[in-house]
Computed example of a mutant assay.
Amino acid sequence: MDYYCNLSKYRGAIFDMDGTLVDSDTAIAKAIAPWCQRHQLDIEQVLRDGRGVRFEDYVKQYLPHLDLHQEVKHLEGAEATFAKYVKEIAGAKAFLTYLQQLNLPWALATSADRDNAVERMRTCHLPIPTHLIGAEDVQQGKPDPEPFTAAANKLGLPCRECVVFEDSDAGVQGALSAGCDVVVVGRFCQLSHSNIVARINDYTNWNAKLLHGREAC
């Protein structure tokens, strides 16, 4: 079921990146496949359980005995080599451009490291936000609310005045815990909550669904 949301009630927006602004599923799968094979991990399970979380949390969950810093650096480096497989979620650039025209400030709260986040946004010709919270900028990653509270702080706004765009269970849980309303992007998150104010497949119909909806959220 789709819900409809009028964005005019918010003073800021916070976006996840992977699965929300860019489709990086192929790049991430290619990056972690050799790592999973080397450590005899089920790649499908790792991809499923790890959607929306940091590489640091992958390692802590599956291989806590390994050198955390070394493994994360290896995975981040592998991920960077497959940047060419990343593509824009349909309509994302136009939507971000429109938010700028509306003077609605936005921030990025991603589980990717900052370097990979900037590279993916550039690869997809998306604007680089002034405020970017990456994996290394928080003590606790999603589903903890810290990435979203940090992004809201960067915007100079309370979380309740921000709307979050997210695709994963972990991200949606974190945003809700922070006190934000949430627009779910894509088909992966099936959570139900009164503060999930819209569901969209992509941004191609954003004008109808998000700005001039039948129900004000």
Rank of each mutant, 00 (worst) to 15 (best):
T130K: 13
E136S: 07
T130G: 01
D23T: 10
M1V: 11
A216Q: 12
Y10S: 04
V138N: 04
A27R: 07
L99A: 08
I89Y: 12
P147R: 05
L155R: 05
I43N: 00
R187C: 03
Y10A: 05
L21V: 11
W106R: 04
Y98G: 00
L41M: 08
R122N: 14
K30L: 15
G186E: 05
N205D: 15
A92G: 13
F148K: 07
N207K: 15
T97G: 09
R38D: 12
A112E: 00
A29Q: 13
A29P: 02
R54G: 01
H69M: 03
A135H: 02
P105N: 08
I200L: 08
R51W: 01
V163S: 03
E161K: 10
R48W: 06
C189F: 07
G91P: 12
E161F: 05
A78E: 15
K9Y: 09
V183C: 13
P129I: 04
N103C: 04
P143T: 10
V164D: 11
F82L: 00
D181C: 04
A29H: 11
H131V: 07
D202M: 04
K84Q: 12
D137Q: 03
L157F: 04
S168R: 10
A152F: 09
H39L: 15
A208N: 05
T149H: 11
A80G: 04
C189S: 02
E166T: 08
V164H: 14
M1K: 09
D23M: 13
L99P: 13
T26Q: 14
S177M: 11
G50F: 06
K9W: 06
A198Y: 06
A216G: 07
D18W: 10
V53R: 09
S177R: 13
N153R: 15
Q140P: 00
N207A: 14
E71K: 07
L104S: 01
T130H: 08
H65Q: 15
A170I: 07
S111G: 12
C180E: 10
E146L: 03
N207W: 12
D113H: 05
